[in-house]
């Protein structure tokens, strides 16, 4: 699955106003979104460049025809947990159940694994990137990630509102984090901090407006064009209220910088 993306920034003072404008545009009430994102880094070695070329003496004549594939990058991936207001800072609720996934169906799943690739280089006026979301309906997601040779990096929270305008998913949010504890953590918190203890990552408290259209297949040009034009239409519609723009694609880079281990 691919995502078409546009981003805009709204200062905190205009948050209320933009929220109302968006409610009018989408003709629906905003839905509150609270998420915890846990970032993981793969610990395995990337495939060695050119490892598919056989070395040593070989009888194969067709060696020349082997394509030189570039080395595959390793990317950070995330676990996303849907939260509600009550879940913050609830110590008294018996054993911490924060790290078990449950949910009868995918629609009700609390946890999901999100993998986003670095946006591709094509210029369509919108960002395009490969994105995979896998809903986790049971088990311990953290244990699963660790077992898949991932290493916990950090966690942050996303607070905001979501709108759906035809096919455009509008997430009007800001990123929150718990100040000061980031470097000390080695595993995601089992007991969530209180909501008041979280601070906006951007000290000015500005909000981010993310407009997203999901496209199943980029190879189908008609569908892609329809998606791009719909997103651009939304961009024009919001002109004067929020300037939606294409950010630098490398600011959404999820690749892991690989340092070969010194022997």
């Amino acid at each position: 699955m691919h995502e078409l993306l546009l981003y805009g920034q709204v200062p905190r003072s205009r948050h209320e106003q933009v929220l109302k404008v968006l409610a009018g545009v989408a003709a629906m009430q905003p839905r509150r979104v609270l998420q915890r994102h846990i970032v993981y880094k793969p610990t395995r070695e990337p495939e060695e460049p050119g490892s598919n070329i056989r070395r040593g003496g070989t009888q194969a004549v067709a060696v020349k025809n082997t394509k030189q594939t570039p080395p595959k990058d390793l990317n950070f991936s995330q676990l996303v947990q849907k939260l509600s207001d009550e879940e913050f800072g609830s110590h008294s609720n018996g054993p911490p159940a924060a790290l078990t996934a449950n949910g009868a169906s995918a629609a009700e799943a609390k946890w999901s694994m999100v993998f986003n690739e670095t946006p591709d280089t094509t210029d369509r006026g919108v960002l395009t990137r490969l994105a995979q979301t896998t809903d986790i309906t049971s088990g311990d997601p953290h244990a699963y990630m660790v077992a898949g040779r991932h290493q916990f990096v950090s966690e942050y929270y996303v607070e905001g509102h979501r709108f759906v305008h035809e096919n455009v998913v509008i997430l009007f949010h800001r990123v929150l984090h718990e100040p000061g504890v980031r470097s000390l953590e080695t595993a995601p918190k089992e007991v969530l901090p209180t909501f008041e203890a979280l601070q906006s990552l951007d000290p000015s408290g500005a909000y981010i407006l993310e407009a997203k259209i999901r496209v199943q297949d980029l190879n189908n040009l008609t569908v892609l064009e329809a998606g791009v034009s719909e997103l651009k239409r939304f961009q024009t519609q919001m002109k004067g209220c929020v300037e939606l723009a294409v950010p630098d694609r490398l600011s959404l880079d999820t690749r892991v910088k690989y340092k070969p281990k010194t022997a």
Binding site: M1, M28, R31, V164, N167, I213, R214, V215
Partner: peptide, 14 residues
């Protein structure tokens, strides 16, 4: 209709 509209739309396909 409002309810269905507010759900996350499925990705665009043919």
């Amino acid at each position: 209709r409002l309810f269905r509209r507010s759900q996350l739309p499925s990705p665009l396909t043919k």
